[in-house]
């Protein structure tokens, strides 16, 4: 019964958290730019407005279907990532499964944008897949290293191990090289500056979102809100000792997100090749050295 409640309400809960976090990030960036900024619930207004648009031009059934694949992939990932109080599905899918299904949204987006046949969209998708090659390799490597020390690939067990070790047991403290590599990869995964090459409004007109209007964009924003929380939660579970209760969880989310958007607010954007090169020059060697430390 409890599990059913969690399954029903977890998407809504994470959506609300995610939208407030996005609103907070807009306010935060505005304050850094010495503006007043929008109200913190602004993203709710945006999503409501998009969902209540009167016309929604579709470019074909693949366009419609891919949007659902995008949202579905994110929701699927969300269920496999343990949050405090809910780890029912975590026993069926370990970290390998999560790494695998994390790619579904990107592929869904590629299919849908391909149907819209907009050149900006195609450039955006190719950039997104380039970035994926950039950040995914360091991220997977850090995870492999982490699984090697603890002899498990289950995310729930990794949380247990870290919490047993107290503060010193946190992944970021016990394996700082892996932690830092994953932190940089996380910035790329969230698509925040300086790795914002996929969206890049001033170059390629928001890339994959170019042809998305109305409800399509609304669903993409909902997906974005949830996926931000999910990706941050993966990092918290692997490197910040998971979370014992919801207060702990929200606090860690807040601090981690603030750190990432602070970087976002003051940096420009890398070129695509520079971004991938950076990912392979800094986080990748860090992760490899971290793994070598573990092996020897």
């Amino acid at each position: 019964m409890n599990t059913v409640l969690w399954i029903v309400f977890l998407p809504i809960l994470l959506f609300v958290i995610g939208t407030f976090m996005l609103g907070y990030s807009r306010k935060y960036v505005a304050r850094i730019e010495r503006r007043y900024g929008p109200p913190i619930q602004q993203v709710f207004y945006d999503i409501f407005k998009l969902m209540s648009k009167k016309t929604n031009i579709s470019h074909g059934w693949m366009h419609d279907f891919a949007i659902l694949m995008l949202l579905g992939g994110t929701l699927l990932t969300m269920y496999f990532v343990p949050v405090p109080g809910f780890h029912f599905f975590a026993q069926y899918g370990d970290m390998l499964v999560i790494m695998y299904i994390l790619l579904i949204p990107a592929l869904g987006m590629a299919l849908g944008v391909g149907e819209t046949a907009n050149p900006n969209g195609s450039i955006g998708i190719s950039r997104a897949l380039m970035m994926l090659a950039g950040y995914d390799i360091p991220f997977v490597l850090t995870f492999i290293g982490f699984a090697m020390i603890n002899h498990t690939t289950s995310m729930y067990e990794l949380i247990q191990v870290q919490q047993a070790g107290g503060f010193a047991g946190w992944g970021l403290i016990s394996q700082p090289l892996l932690g830092i590599a994953a932190l940089i990869a996380l910035q790329g995964m969230l698509g925040e500056k300086p790795f914002e090459v996929m969206v890049a409004p001033h170059e390629i007109a928001t890339g994959p979102m170019t042809e998305m209007g109305g409800k399509f964009l609304g669903i993409m924003m909902i997906q974005h809100a949830i996926s931000i929380v999910v990706e941050l939660t993966i990092y918290i579970n692997l490197f910040l000792g998971g979370a014992v209760n919801w207060f702990d969880y929200l606090l860690k989310l807040f601090i981690l997100f603030t750190a990432l958007i602070s970087v976002n607010a003051v940096f420009g954007r890398f070129r695509t090749d520079d971004a991938v090169r950076f990912m392979w020059k800094i986080p990748l060697p860090l992760a490899i050295i971290g793994i070598l430390f573990i092996i020897f």
Binding site: R35, Y36, T206, E211, M212, G213
Partner: peptide, 18 residues
Amino acid sequence: ARFDMERFGINPMVTPRQ
């Protein structure tokens, strides 16, 4: 910063669809 229209939720967008 001077007039900041994002206060009213008005943002510049780059494509007509959005």
